[in-house]
Amino acid sequence: MSQWWLWSFVVVALGAVLYFVRWSREPKGVPITVYLLAIVILIWSAIWHAVMALGGAHTTVGDHDVHWGYYADWIVTAPLLGYALIRTGTHALTGKRTDLAALVAVTSVPMIVCGLVGDLALEPTTRYLAYGVGVLALVANFVVIWGPLRRAAIRQPAPMAAHFVPLAALLSALWLGFTLVWLLGHPGLGMVDETTTTAVFVVLTVLMKVVWSALDLRQLRLLADRDHLQVV
């Protein structure tokens, strides 16, 4: 059943890629790089889900399997999703705040690396220490999003600022969801079996990389139609 869930994501992701490509042909004032960002995220994630579905990207450590394909996916897509949020939060501003992009990358990468270290660890102490450090990195990520990025976002025209808040809240909730599933699932406490962990990871991934991106792009296109993307 795990393979079925993994292949399901591949199919959904490729369908979303085709849909975003279609949108990009009529960008409606949204920069083409915004579409490309969503497409790259989906293609990269689909590749690693396909590899895992074919039985690759995993290794056995002690008495459990480590599916490191997830981390190969996340270490690229987590910073890119953060960057996509920054693009939206600063879309109508003259300064694009590359410093915020660097901060999101700096906090996202340790979050993923710590997850892998915890998954590979044989000793519970090491595992949960790594998990704790990863949670701290996630908190640092939230500080960036809800601190300087939110302050930048509310300087935009009101409709753009209003779009940023629920978008940031959804991304934050999904990141927190991954963290909780890791803890309760196969990599952590093992309270949830591997198939269920895979299923929940896939559902969260669809919400994060398909639904979240579609909501962002759709609203940006609508705001562009109403001339709310003018630089201020």
Rank of each mutant, 00 (worst) to 15 (best):
31 P>Q: 01
31 P>F: 01
31 P>H: 02
31 P>G: 01
31 P>E: 03
32 I>H: 00
32 I>T: 15
32 I>A: 00
33 T>V: 10
34 V>G: 02
35 Y>T: 00
35 Y>A: 03
36 L>H: 05
36 L>D: 00
37 L>C: 07
37 L>P: 02
39 I>K: 13
40 V>H: 01
40 V>M: 04
40 V>F: 15
40 V>E: 02
41 I>R: 08
41 I>S: 04
44 W>F: 12
44 W>R: 06
44 W>N: 10
44 W>L: 14
45 S>A: 15
46 A>E: 03
46 A>S: 15
47 I>H: 09
47 I>V: 15
47 I>E: 06
48 W>C: 10
49 H>T: 10
49 H>S: 12
49 H>K: 13
50 A>T: 14
51 V>D: 14
52 M>Y: 12
52 M>F: 13
53 A>L: 12
53 A>E: 10
53 A>T: 13
53 A>M: 13
54 L>R: 14
54 L>P: 04
54 L>F: 15
55 G>W: 12
56 G>L: 12
56 G>K: 09
57 A>C: 11
57 A>R: 02
58 H>N: 12
58 H>P: 03
59 T>N: 00
59 T>Y: 03
60 T>W: 09
60 T>V: 14
61 V>T: 14
62 G>E: 06
63 D>V: 07
64 H>A: 12
64 H>V: 12
64 H>K: 15
65 D>A: 13
66 V>H: 03
66 V>I: 13
67 H>Y: 09
67 H>K: 06
70 Y>S: 04
70 Y>R: 11
71 Y>K: 06
71 Y>L: 08
71 Y>R: 05
72 A>F: 04
72 A>D: 06
73 D>A: 11
73 D>L: 10
74 W>P: 00
74 W>D: 07
74 W>I: 05
75 I>W: 05
75 I>P: 04
75 I>Q: 06
75 I>H: 08
76 V>D: 03
77 T>C: 13
77 T>Y: 00
77 T>S: 07
79 P>R: 02
79 P>L: 06
79 P>K: 02
80 L>V: 05
81 L>D: 04
82 G>W: 05
82 G>R: 07
83 Y>V: 14
83 Y>P: 01
84 A>E: 03
84 A>Y: 09
84 A>D: 02
84 A>S: 14
85 L>E: 05
85 L>F: 07
87 R>K: 07
89 G>E: 09
90 T>D: 10
91 H>R: 13
92 A>C: 13
93 L>S: 11
93 L>G: 10
94 T>D: 11
94 T>L: 07
95 G>Y: 12
96 K>N: 07
96 K>Y: 07
96 K>G: 05
97 R>Y: 08
99 D>L: 09
100 L>S: 06
100 L>V: 15
102 A>E: 06
105 A>T: 15
105 A>I: 07
105 A>P: 01
105 A>C: 10
106 V>K: 04
106 V>D: 01
107 T>P: 01
107 T>A: 10
107 T>K: 01
108 S>Y: 03
108 S>G: 07
108 S>H: 11
109 V>S: 11
111 M>T: 05
111 M>C: 09
112 I>Y: 03
113 V>M: 06
113 V>F: 05
113 V>W: 05
114 C>Q: 08
114 C>I: 00
114 C>P: 01
115 G>M: 07
117 V>N: 08
118 G>F: 05
118 G>E: 02
